[in-house]
Nucleic acid binder design. Structure first.
Lengths: 189, 189
DNA sequence: TCCATTTGCCTAATAGCCTTAGGTAGATAG
DNA sequence: CTATCTACCTAAGGCTATTAGGCAAATGGA
């Protein structure tokens, strides 16, 4: 019997593609096996469980977004950098909805710590160096940025404000603009 | 055979309680049937499908949060109101994690329109009347508030910033504070 | 090149959840 | 008190996940 040439990486990549195509929820091991024309049990040589694969897809998505973030931030600072990073998340979610959903998974602390998660915090901190904040305020601001980026993209994806005026793009621009203003004049406690 | 006295409402309520207890994902019809000491098929007289129940739990959660919001906003305005509403979401998520997860479901436009979703927008608009914003800017600001509230609670729940300093409460206070400042001096386009 | 080992994929089997079809007994109404 | 309704049941089929054990293809050492 011909071998399909499965590897953990290939399965993860295919799982990610499948998630984008039919949704993270519907991307099952069974469906994956069907696509590779292989029996489900065969996948267990490369992946510990269904959950294991989903975590791998989540980690892949986090890495990909971090990579895009690095690229986007190169040579930018201040408001430019802020906008660039925000767009990384928003664009990624549009292009890869399944992967983006995967990235929202709650990872256990161990896994989260060794994921690209910390890279995301680092990128936000890098942006904040363009503003004048104390160490503690930088942390608060990182959390604010994370909340706004994740929150906005999430609401946009759940259709919260499609087909209503003003359109989503305008709000997005306006929100990034006001975040910049806020960071420039970050209020004293 | 004694009857269990099932109704759609009772199942929805039990589904919500079960979600809080074992997680929204794990709250299955099978488990629900077990709790009521009833066969799974019996539930189908009261609920169309597994998905149907999950949507009902989501709608319940949205209603409950809106009710809490109304109560919290009564007699408050400006920054007080902002803080009060923010805490409604944060506290609700802590007290009812399963329900909160349910509320994140992507509902189809029909269902979303007839849900308590619009009440949430209305509450935010009510708060913004305490600030001086144009109609369009009010919409942008509603979206910003929604993003921050949802985003922050989501990140907090996924363990993003537990066990790190400054603690999450401080960031939350600081962020609400800065949102207030931002709204007071909302930048011109 | 041949043999030994590894390993990639298979079959078989179990278990859990979801869903539909059709039956029965307890509640309800005329 | 009977007729209808309906709440719950049994039975059965389908999909997903997971484990155990087997065979054949690939791999590497002599």
């Amino acid at each position: 019997m011909a071998r399909a040439g499965l590897t953990t990486e290939r399965l993860t990549e295919a799982g990610a593609a499948l998630s984008d195509e039919i949704g993270f929820e519907r991307a099952t091991l069974s469906e994956l096996a069907r696509r590779f024309d292989v029996k489900v049990a065969s996948l267990y040589s490369h992946v510990r469980s269904s959950e294991d694969l989903r975590i791998r897809v989540a980690l892949l998505a986090l890495e990909e977004m971090a990579d895009r973030g690095d690229t986007a931030l190169a040579g930018r600072a201040g408001k430019d950098a802020l906008i660039a990073l925000g767009n990384v998340y928003r664009d990624y979610a549009r292009e890869h909805p399944g992967r983006y959903d995967a990235a929202q998974m709650r990872l256990d602390p161990q896994t989260a710590a060794s994921s690209a998660g910390p890279r995301h915090s680092q990128m936000m901190r890098a942006i904040l160096r363009g503003y004048d904040l104390t160490e503690a305020d930088q942390t608060h601001a990182v959390r604010l940025l994370g909340s706004v980026f994740n929150g906005y993209v999430g609401l946009e994806r759940s259709g919260g404000f499609s087909h209503s005026t003003p359109d989503s793009q305008q709000s997005w621009d306006r929100i990034l603009d006001s975040l910049d203003t806020l960071l420039k004049g970050w209020p004293a406690p």
